[in-house]
Design a protein around this nucleic acid. Structure first.
Lengths: 263, 263
DNA sequence: CGGACGTTTGATGGCGATCAACTACTGTGG
DNA sequence: CCACAGTAGTTGATCGCCATCAAACGTCCG
């Protein structure tokens, strides 16, 4: 893992757009406010036009599982979900995390059955929408289709980012990037990000990031030692993140080839 | 990498459906014929209802790149593409491979600009369809929408499988699984699978699989030594795969904890 | 023919997996 | 209330896979 190998074959034509996004300063806050408002609007639209069945879930509840007949899409109104992929030989892999406003069940459309398990990690509420009903309703309200496509598109884009993290970052950086992602996700939804409660065990985080629970634990200890995060007293499940930017900086530090001692 | 760690936390409730799919015997051929026919029908539908602009591409051509304004979706009618993700700090990662019938550009819908580069790896033809035009046309022909959603859904499902491979398989198995995926992709499209031409360098394959080009090379040598694949004389770019099943078996062998010498 | 590029193969080292021991929190029953 | 599992997390010691470095070879193309 952690191979800048392609770079040695194809020169990385550094992209101005991408670089600009990274350089984005404190404008992030305004961006998050806008995103958060948009989310509320979208949820409102869905509620009005689809009148979805609401379903309360608790940690451990499975909302659909691999192999089950497809039919519904689920919109997460509160709580957290993990998406778990299963292989024929019994391997299991956390392939996604879902927050408020995210949709679940897209993977079922193509094959007409779901290909993953969707498991609640906390108390929450999901809205159940039949795929057929969504299509029908979107004839009257095209904005529904737009919302639906946007959710799918976001999922695709994020899955690619996940793959990139796993393929190009060393273990410590992956954990830092994971925390950054989690904090970003909360921020976009207008939630606090300075103190977050990880709803996953070290084993689950490790599985998601392609490493062992011990490595996750060590990485977190290292992050705490470097004051990038801080553990809240009594219980290592809560993490304080004074500065999300410090997490990004930590990732970059992991990628830096050598400290460049002199000069 | 290569961690069955989650299993130690959450018992893998082995899923009958998944197991059944793996056990699928020679029925695969019929499945592929059906898929291939379906593909032709779908392409026909798209051609008739959308009258897409056709564009011939050659190896190296970039059909869209990260940051570019979104507007079009692209349907691959022939040839091969790679999708390359770029990070702000210059890392680049091959996050997807596209074959005939696949769509490109979904990642642009959400943010209204593409987030990856789409690069041709061979001569081919893509059909250019404006997203707006697609939505408009699908009012008259709902089947278009179904085709579109199916393509997105398949992409999501496959991205998850990729993540699982990278996270749970050791290097040799990843390469074997990659070849199996490539052969499967060709088979589904009615193409020959016994002899395939990899249109990627070892460095590109390695990048896609999260390992170095040297590891890819060694893995291929090992596969050849075990007679799972065979190199065609003159040029290590062509690979013969006498039996795709042998690749799956090789993956399982890599996962098997110990040879279990006795008994 | 020479240079660029892709590939193979060997030698070595380091990151992270594995194994193991210990601590801390939680809930259960005496 | 405490004893107690049982679960989750931390930390250390060791090992092995794979990255890295290095050298050589084959192929392609000017």
């Amino acid at each position: 893992m952690f191979n800048p190998s392609l770079t040695q074959a194809a020169a990385p034509a550094m992209n101005g757009f991408i670089a600009a996004r990274a350089a984005m300063p404190k404008a992030g806050i305004a961006v998050h406010e806008r995103a958060s408002r948009k989310l509320v609007e979208t949820q409102q639209l869905l509620k009005e036009r689809l009148a979805p069945q609401r379903r309360v879930v608790h940690a451990g509840d499975v909302i659909y599982q691999a192999g089950e007949q497809f039919g519904n899409l689920y919109i997460l109104n509160s709580g957290f979900f993990k998406i778990v992929n299963l292989s024929a030989d019994g391997r299991e892999q956390v392939v996604g995390l879902k927050f408020r406003g995210d949709w679940l069940g897209f993977d079922g459309i193509a094959a007409n059955h779901y290909s993953c398990d969707a498991v609640a990690m906390d108390t929450g509420e999901v809205w159940v929408v039949s795929y057929e009903a969504l299509l029908a309703a979107s004839l009257a309200e095209p904005a529904l289709l737009q919302v639906f496509h946007t959710a799918m598109s976001r999922e695709i884009a994020h899955d690619r980012d996940s793959l990139m993290s796993v393929c190009t970052l060393p273990a410590d950086a992956r954990v830092a990037d994971f925390l950054r992602y989690w904090a970003e996700s909360l921020a976009e939804r207008g939630m606090r990000t300075d103190q977050i409660t990880l709803r996953m065990t070290r084993a689950e985080i490790g599985n998601y990031l392609g490493m062992t629970l011990e490595s996750v634990s060590r990485a977190l200890s290292r992050l705490a030692r470097d004051k990038v995060i801080e553990f809240v007293e009594k219980g290592r499940r809560d993490v304080q993140i004074p500065d999300v930017g410090a997490l990004s900086a930590f990732v970059q530090r992991c990628l830096a080839p050598a400290p460049a001692m002199l000069q």
